[in-house]
Simulated scan of single mutants.
Amino acid sequence: MTETLNNLTVLGAGVLGGQIAWHSAFKGKQVVVYDLYDDSLERCKMAHQQYAVIYLAELGATQAMISETHARLTYSSQLADAVARADLVIEAVPEIPETKTSVYQQMASLLPAHTLVATNSSTLLPAQFASATGRPEKYCALHFANMIWSMNLAEVMAHADTADDTLRAITRFAIEIGMVPIPIQKEQNGYVLNTWLVPLLNATQSLITNGVSTPEYIDRTYLIANRGCTLGPCGIMDIIGMKTCYDVMTYWGNENQDEQLLANAAYIKQHFIVQGKLGLQTGEGYYRYPDPAYQAQDFLAVPGLDAVEDLVRLVRPHPLAAAS
């Protein structure tokens, strides 16, 4: 088994796949970003340009370091080429079980014998896909948080057949790219991070779907109650991306026959996805970027008395609430 995992392939050029790829390249890994769709790869390249600006401003990166990062990145829509030299493949495709299974099955015969595979799934279990990889002993979960450069955690979860050498190599990789490994001692949907985050986001979306409050006032409530936090739940959904939120809510809504979750998914589809508003990656979700309202200095300020009438209008029953 390769002791140091230097050649990384990331399957999926979405929000978090793009972040994992960029950050790993920044930390010295050779990275191939794979996606079936060329337009997704183009969006990923654009996101990497944005990350370069962030790393220069927030991480003290030099222009030389950014140039070296770009040089370590390649992009491919050909799966065989993308994984041909991989020491590690991190799967970051949509949270749809059938999609993940299909990708693993297509990839299984293409991988070098030594290659390890990890899923970045945020809510699904590695045991669901281990057999599809064709190498269950070389497979586990390695789940990252959005805004990987500042929320630098990586949850490591095994399934029953994961080899200890796999866990050692994956944990070492996480440390090498600047992550704090979070050991997950038993398989659980949601791991640590999303066990508490997903219910928060579901509750937030229910408040919006059911007309109880507005996104900005929900985020104000959260940020005032949790002084020091920089993001409220609606801002978090924008960063995660509306497509991922929709996929997770749809899957668990159907799995648990949860009508509220399905209503939340339908709301996100109608108000965001069909309008091309996918969150931070497209410049608009619940907020407009690059200057979202929650970053304004007065977002949490006590309003002036001239705001009373506007606030009273918001207190009047919303039609959805009145009908329930």
Rank of each mutant, 00 (worst) to 15 (best):
T282L: 08
P136T: 05
D219E: 04
Q275A: 14
V33S: 00
A86Y: 00
V10Q: 00
R135C: 07
M151Y: 07
L280A: 12
P233N: 02
M237I: 02
K138A: 08
L79T: 10
I148S: 05
L200G: 05
L320E: 11
T62D: 09
E155V: 02
R85K: 15
L16T: 09
E68K: 14
T171Q: 08
T171I: 14
L305D: 12
Q78G: 09
L193I: 04
T250F: 04
A160R: 05
T162D: 00
R313C: 11
E187R: 08
E3M: 08
V103K: 07
R72P: 12
N226E: 01
P126D: 07
S67G: 11
R135D: 00
A132Y: 03
F272S: 13
P233H: 01
V89L: 08
C245L: 05
V10G: 01
A64E: 14
I175G: 07
D164G: 02
I148F: 02
M147I: 10
P233K: 01
G12P: 06
Q128W: 15
K269L: 06
D298V: 10
L320F: 14
K243C: 04
A293V: 15
A158W: 05
Q30L: 10
G60K: 10
Q275G: 15
L88E: 15
Q49N: 14
G17K: 03
L207H: 00
D39S: 14
G279E: 08
P215A: 00
A174T: 03
G178S: 03
F144R: 02
M179Y: 02
A323G: 09
A52V: 05
V117F: 07
S122Y: 10
E58L: 07
R316I: 03
R85A: 15
E137P: 01
E284F: 05
V248Q: 03
V103I: 15
L8V: 14
V212R: 00
Y289F: 14
W149I: 08
A57R: 15
L200Q: 08
A141F: 03
N152W: 00
Y104R: 13
L167H: 06
T99E: 14
M107C: 15
A118N: 06
G279S: 10
P199Y: 00
Y104I: 13
A92K: 02
G28Q: 10
S24C: 12
I54A: 10
P303Q: 09
L197R: 00
A64C: 07
A92W: 00
K277G: 06
G235A: 10
Q105P: 12
I96M: 09
N254A: 10
Y222H: 07
D164E: 14
A92Y: 00
P112A: 12
V302S: 08
A265R: 04
P126M: 02
V53R: 14
T2V: 14
T99H: 09
N189Y: 08
L280I: 11
I240E: 03
A160Q: 10
V248S: 01
L11T: 09
S76L: 13
N189Q: 11
T2I: 15
Q188E: 09
I175Q: 13
T119I: 06
Q275T: 11
E284Y: 05
D87Q: 13
F299I: 13
V33A: 01
F129L: 06
L8Q: 07
H318K: 02
I182M: 06
A265T: 11
A47R: 14
A118L: 08
M151G: 05
G232L: 04
T209F: 00
A321T: 12
A61R: 01
A127K: 12
M237V: 01
V248Y: 01
P136L: 01
T162V: 00
A296Q: 15
Y286H: 13
W22L: 12
